[in-house]
Each structure stands twice: as structure tokens, then as C-alpha cells.
Amino acid sequence: MTAELGNLKGYDPFADTEDNDGSGAGIQGGLIHIRIQQRNGRKTLTTVQGIHPKFDLKKLARVCKKKFNCNGTVVEHPEYGEVIQLQGDKREAMNSFLSEVGIASSDLIKVHGF
């Protein structure tokens, strides 16, 4: 009995959070948010927030730009960490890209906007 109870102590509930502390890898549960913003005219901007910082976002952005035929950048945000911005409505493309490459499973990706 005591031995079994002892097992409880060995478990560190924060063990799997790793480098998640303070680096802002997404606010809730590692969810990746893909949002869209309207700019002037019929132009739009896609933002991808919450990709885990263990990935090199600059490289990701470079690949995305090439793959989706658009321009884009990575911006640093004090609360949300690094955020990829892409020109145009690339939500669907980004969604499939992220799950294809294996950065996040599709249930962890949340697509916002209309």
C-alpha cells in the first residue's frame, strides 16, 4: 500500500511542459490559431499564432512564402511569441501545410475568420 502511494510522488506534473514556460508558445494548450485580417481593398493578411518555439519560424516562413506564392514575415509579440504573417488569404493552405508537415495535428489548429 505504502509502496503504491509512493509512486505518486515520483510524478512531476510539469515534466512535459519543457521550454513552454514564458516563451508563449500559444496561450492555451498549444493551440495554433490561424486568423485573417482585412486590409485595404480586397487585400487580406493571414496570421499564424502559437507555433511551438522549438520550430524555426523564420525557416517556416521562408518555406511558406515559396509554397504559397506570397510574401510574409515573422513578427515578435511580447504576449504571443513569434507570429508568422503572410499576405493574402492563406488559411486553408496554411492549415493543410501545418498538418502535412507534422507541426500540429489538425485538431490543434484553429482557423478563425469568416
Binding site: I27, T47, Y80
Partner: peptide, 12 residues
């Protein structure tokens, strides 16, 4: 239910 969060807003 999840609270409503605006999230990151780019400068447009």
C-alpha cells in the same frame, strides 16, 4: 466554454 480572445492583431 472557451473565453473569447482576440489574439494577435497585425498592424494593418
Amino acid at each position: 466554454v472557451a473565453s473569447i480572445k482576440t489574439g494577435f492583431q497585425a498592424v494593418t
